[in-house]
Amino acid sequence: MFLQQLINGLTLGGVYALIAVGYTMVYGVIQLINFAHGEIYMFGAFLAYTFAGTLGVPFYLAMVLSMLCCAGLGMLIDLVAYRPLRLAPRLAALITAIGVSLFLQNLARILWGAQNKPFPHAAVPAYLHETALRFAGVTVSYLQLFMFAVTLAMMASLHFIITRTRYGKAMRACAQDRVAAYLMGIDMDRIVTATFALGSAMGAVAGVLVGVYFNVIFPTMGYTAGVKAFAAAVLGGIGNVPGAMLGGLVLGIGEAFGAAYLSSLYSHGIAYAIMILVIVLRPYGLLGKREGVKS
């Protein structure tokens, strides 16, 4: 029971972490809480559904295509909705983000309908739902293994990008001191665009994984996932990438144990409880710095 819940928690936690890094990276660079990020995740699921289910594209390829489309969508949202407000008061961009989020939810309703949709079985390789490992009363499906593998690979790539590549380092530079980044001739607009693309691609992957895992997708699925991932980002320390990864895992495990040992009714509440506890006890998050946001 304990081990099983730990594994279930890690599976979902990895997904939360994938979404949370998108919030945290954008926040780090432009101090915007991109409320539309959950909708990118939702679009990721629906686009894969369309590619694999409707157009018959092989599942793994559909996942990659959905990632690319969502990277483009993220860049487009920034260009159209946020960039014109870069110098405006922060509240303006925040309200716009909520508007974009509602817009995308309704766009999804128009494109795919408002009902819950199962992920078509034919579209997903059948073995993914089979049991891969069984030991000590614990079962792990191929899908769970796949989710671990994808999450790990994405996190490793992200880590490589932000610590080794020129653009990734520039992202960190912009987050640490935007005046200095500006004075070094770092083109902030391009860095922000890259940040949105990267975060959105990771969110899209999460959407596909969750869509297949729970076998249901719907236009408002980004809302709960978005709030939870945001809680994970806050837990880790908003703006801090390793923090978001850790926060996602802690939240996933917390939820799994909450559902198992308290009641499944509580599982959604765990995210909110964690967020409130963090704000009260450690507002800068697990890995965040005490001084927090720089002006």
Binding site: R166, K169, A170, R172, A173, Q176, D177, V179, A180, A181, L183, M184, G185, I186
Partner: peptide
């Protein structure tokens, strides 16, 4: 206005961004 959480080498590298 250094990048405080980046190494000395990385700070220098950012100087040569263009």
């Amino acid at each position: 206005h250094l990048f405080p959480d980046m190494s000395v080498a990385e700070n220098l590298e950012m100087g040569a961004f263009s």
